[in-house]
Simulated scan of single mutants.
Amino acid sequence: MSYQRVLMAIDLTEESSQVADRAVALCRATNAQLSLIHVIEPLSFAYGGDVPMDLSTIQEQLDQHAQERLTEFAAGLGIPVQQQYVLTGHTESEIHRIAKQDDIDLVIVGSHGRHGLALLLGSTANGVLHGASCDVLAVRVHSE
């Protein structure tokens, strides 16, 4: 199968460059278009609705910081702005939504390959795999 549209999901950690190396090589070999996505889980997911303070300012700062980091990361790869997504929501759901919206035929995610069968892919990679309507490539990353 030849891939035409590839979506790389990154968490903007140092390991993201390892995933990018594989994604860029694959896209060059198949002449595919590469897009990037970074999803920010809302603070309300982490803390529930019981937090007695307004988290919107902090959420906006997190979103802005992520956008700046993704823009810088994408610039290093030559990926245009219209192929970059910084979204707030449930990670797997947002990746699936953009993959469907943009007719993506391959999603690339990083996987830490932690010990144990249940942790083989990691929770995010596993969630992306099980709900995807296209192929998913999990790139094993190593802590640097």
Rank of each mutant, 00 (worst) to 15 (best):
Q4G: 15
T13A: 10
L119K: 14
C27V: 10
I79F: 05
A132D: 11
D54T: 11
S35Y: 08
Q101Y: 01
A25E: 13
D135S: 15
L137P: 00
G122L: 07
M1Q: 00
R114D: 09
D102N: 14
S93V: 10
A132L: 12
S35I: 04
I40T: 06
V109T: 08
L7G: 10
Q33F: 09
E60V: 00
T91R: 04
L106W: 07
E14M: 10
D63G: 01
P80S: 15
C27G: 02
L34G: 02
L117P: 10
L55Y: 00
E94Y: 02
T71P: 09
L120G: 06
R69I: 03
F45E: 14
D11F: 00
V19C: 04
N126V: 12
S35N: 05
A132Q: 13
S16E: 06
L117A: 04
A29D: 12
I10V: 15
L106C: 02
Q67R: 09
V109H: 01
L43T: 08
I95Q: 02
V81W: 09
L129N: 07
P42W: 04
E68L: 01
A99D: 10
A66R: 04
Q84V: 04
V19N: 06
E94S: 11
I108Y: 00
L129K: 00
A75M: 15
V24A: 13
L12R: 03
L7I: 14
A25K: 15
L34Y: 07
E68V: 00
L26G: 13
E94R: 02
F45N: 01
M8R: 07
R97Y: 13
Q33P: 03
L106H: 05
R140S: 14
N31R: 15
G131N: 14
L43P: 06
V128N: 03
V81F: 12
Q18S: 07
H112K: 00
E14V: 01
V107N: 01
A9N: 06
I104M: 01
A20S: 15
S111T: 03
A118K: 11
Y47L: 10
S56P: 05
Q59L: 06
D103S: 15
I79W: 03
L62C: 02
L55F: 02
E14Q: 10
L129P: 10
V24C: 12
E94N: 09
T13Y: 06
E15K: 01
A32D: 11
I104P: 02
C134R: 05
D102P: 12
D11S: 13
G127M: 15
G127K: 03
V136K: 06
L119N: 13
H38C: 05
Q4W: 08
T71Y: 05
I95L: 08
L26E: 13
A74P: 13
G49I: 01
D50F: 07
